[in-house]
Simulated scan of single mutants.
Amino acid sequence: MAEGSTKFIKLKIKAQDDTILHFKVNPSTIMKDIFMSYSSKKQMMNYKIFRFFFDGKRLSPKKTVNELGLKNGDEIDAMIHQDGGGSACNY
């Protein structure tokens, strides 16, 4: 690639309610920046309430688009993190 030319990648992030947001990113963009942008568009203050997955594997916010092997048109799943799963009490 010639210096000064940038090839962008279009990614989709799909929420649990099936809404999709589209992002046009540089391959060297770290995922944290994308996650923060997604959270902002969803009017959430902290991206860490979401878990992001691609092909069933959780994405690291420290990796770049290239490092994760994401390609043009790939779809990322966004799930809201929920704590819990404690034992049920029988009264």
Results as ranks from 00 to 15, higher is better:
M1R: 14
A2Y: 06
A2H: 06
E3Q: 06
E3S: 10
E3K: 08
G4C: 04
S5N: 07
S5I: 13
K7E: 12
K7C: 03
F8N: 05
K12W: 01
Q16M: 10
Q16A: 09
Q16V: 04
Q16H: 04
Q16F: 03
Q16W: 02
D17I: 01
D17E: 09
D18C: 10
I20G: 03
I20F: 03
L21S: 15
K24F: 04
K24Q: 10
N26G: 00
N26Q: 14
P27L: 12
P27K: 13
S28N: 15
S28Q: 15
T29E: 15
D33W: 01
D33A: 12
I34K: 05
I34D: 01
I34A: 04
I34Q: 01
I34S: 00
F35M: 15
F35L: 10
S37K: 14
Y38S: 08
S40D: 09
K41V: 02
K42M: 15
K42P: 00
Q43V: 07
M45E: 12
N46E: 10
K48A: 05
I49A: 05
F50P: 02
F52A: 05
F53A: 10
F53S: 13
F53E: 11
D55A: 07
D55R: 11
D55F: 03
G56M: 14
G56A: 12
G56C: 09
K57Q: 09
P61N: 14
P61V: 04
K62T: 13
T64V: 06
N66H: 14
E67S: 09
L68M: 08
L68S: 01
L68Q: 03
G69R: 12
G69N: 08
L70G: 01
K71N: 11
D74R: 02
I76R: 02
A78S: 09
A78F: 00
A78I: 01
A78W: 00
I80L: 05
H81A: 08
Q82L: 09
D83F: 02
D83Y: 04
G84L: 00
G85P: 02
G85D: 10
G86A: 10
A88I: 07
C89N: 07
C89H: 08
N90W: 04
N90V: 05
Y91H: 09
Y91W: 09
Y91E: 10
Y91T: 12
